[in-house]
Simulated scan of single mutants.
Amino acid sequence: MRGFHHHPQGEPSHRHHFGRRGFGRPGHGWEGHAGEGHGGRGRRRVFDSGELRLVLLKLIADEPRHGYELIRAIEELTGGRYVPSPGMIYPTLTMLDEMGHIAEVKSEGARKSFAVTPDGTAHLDERKVEVAALFARLAELAGLQERTDSAPVRRAMGNLREALILRLGRDGVQKQTVHDAVAIIDEAAQRIERL
């Protein structure tokens, strides 16, 4: 395989993460990749490998890009909710290259940029319905990020955090107090789910 699996020199080291601006635990929720990022228990994938190939192919068809630009493009499309890792992007680019769907083009610096080939364009045409559904999924993640990252939600989460630190950070806090606080939080979570 022609290797560009390793992270190119000079590109930031992006970790695979979700909810960058912090609503809930990073990497927790239906949009996670099982076994990646933080946690890794019971999470469903955003994309399987074939779907990720289509997303990258469509982004490259829109304009030639290198790996880091693809990571940033997906991050922007999801409002920061989903940031694929270089360990996902670069092997997928290798596969697209070997399939003849993309080809390396000249670019400035050490980064390898890729453009779509005629075979790649034909493949996108054959899968246009699926491609549209995948980009709709990205837009849905962006909408979810916008709703859960709103200023009132951040303020309320901050208030909860400060209250917990203030009350449970005191010397001599009883175990029952901790249990009561946990019960209140659990009840609030259940009430929100029922809204």
Results as ranks from 00 to 15, higher is better:
Ala103Phe: 12
Arg15Tyr: 12
Ala115Ser: 10
Phe4Lys: 12
Asp171Val: 13
Ala122Leu: 10
Asp180Glu: 12
Glu63Pro: 08
Arg167His: 10
Arg65Leu: 14
Leu54His: 01
Gly3Asn: 12
Glu11Met: 12
Gly3Thr: 11
Arg155Ser: 13
Trp30Ala: 12
Leu54Gln: 00
Val131Trp: 08
Ala133Gln: 10
Val46Asp: 08
Leu124Lys: 07
Phe135Met: 12
His7Arg: 15
Ile71Gln: 00
Gly143Val: 02
Glu126Met: 13
Ala142Pro: 10
Glu31Val: 10
Gly32Ala: 14
Tyr90Leu: 06
Met1Gln: 09
His66Thr: 06
Arg155Pro: 00
His7Phe: 13
Gly29Asn: 06
Gly3Gln: 14
Met95Lys: 15
Glu126Arg: 14
Met88Gln: 13
Arg72Asp: 04
Glu187Gln: 05
Pro152His: 09
Ile102Lys: 09
Ala103Glu: 12
Gln190Arg: 09
Leu93Cys: 09
Leu124Ala: 01
Gly40Glu: 05
Pro26Tyr: 04
Ile184His: 02
Arg44Asn: 10
Ala139Gly: 01
Ile165Phe: 08
Arg81Cys: 01
His28Tyr: 14
Leu144His: 14
Arg15Met: 12
Lys175Leu: 13
Asp62Gly: 04
Leu144Tyr: 11
Asp149Ile: 07
Phe114Gln: 03
Ala110His: 14
Val131Leu: 02
Ser107Gly: 11
Leu57Cys: 00
Val46Ser: 04
Pro12Gln: 12
Leu195Lys: 15
Glu75Asp: 02
Ala163Gln: 08
Gly158Asn: 14
Gln176Pro: 02
Thr177Ser: 13
Val153Gly: 07
Thr92Lys: 01
Gly10Ser: 03
His66Pro: 00
Leu164Trp: 03
Arg127Tyr: 12
Lys112Cys: 00
Lys112Trp: 01
Arg43Tyr: 00
Ala151Asn: 05
Leu134Phe: 07
Leu124Tyr: 02
Thr92Tyr: 00
Tyr82Asp: 05
Glu130Trp: 13
Gly158Ile: 07
Ser85Ala: 15
Glu98Trp: 04
Gly100Val: 01
Arg191Ala: 13
Glu98Cys: 10
Leu166Met: 13
Ala34Lys: 03
Leu160Cys: 09
Gly109Val: 08
Asp186Asn: 07
Gly27Pro: 03
Gln176Cys: 03
Leu96Gln: 02
Arg43Ile: 09
